[in-house]
Computed example of a mutant assay.
Amino acid sequence: MARMSAEERRESVIRAATAEFARGGYHGTSTEAIAKRVGVSQPYLFRLFPGKRAIFIAVVERCIEDTIRTFEEASDGLHGEEALSAMAQAYRRVIAEEPERLMMQMQMYLAVTAAEADGDHEFGEAVRRGWTRLWDTVHLPLGADAGETTSFMAYGMLINCLVAMGFPPDHRVWAGLAPAVRTADLRAD
Rank of each mutant, 00 (worst) to 15 (best):
T183V: 14
S5H: 12
G77D: 13
W131H: 12
I68P: 03
H79L: 10
G143Q: 08
G77A: 11
E20V: 11
A178R: 13
C161W: 04
L78D: 03
D170C: 07
E125W: 15
E148Y: 13
C63V: 09
G28N: 08
S75N: 01
G147I: 07
V138Y: 03
T29Y: 00
P141Q: 03
R172Q: 11
A90S: 08
R182V: 15
I55D: 00
T67N: 09
T70R: 06
T132I: 06
G156E: 04
E125T: 05
M153K: 09
R10P: 08
S41E: 14
L142I: 02
G80F: 02
R133Y: 07
L158Y: 02
R69F: 09
A33Y: 03
S41Y: 14
G80T: 07
D189A: 14
L177C: 12
I57P: 01
E100Q: 12
I64K: 04
P179Y: 04
G130H: 06
R69D: 13
G156S: 10
M106L: 06
D118F: 00
T183N: 03
R187Y: 07
R47M: 06
A35M: 06
G24E: 00
A115F: 09
A22V: 03
A188M: 05
R182S: 04
G176R: 11
T132F: 13
L186P: 00
S12N: 03
L186N: 08
A6H: 10
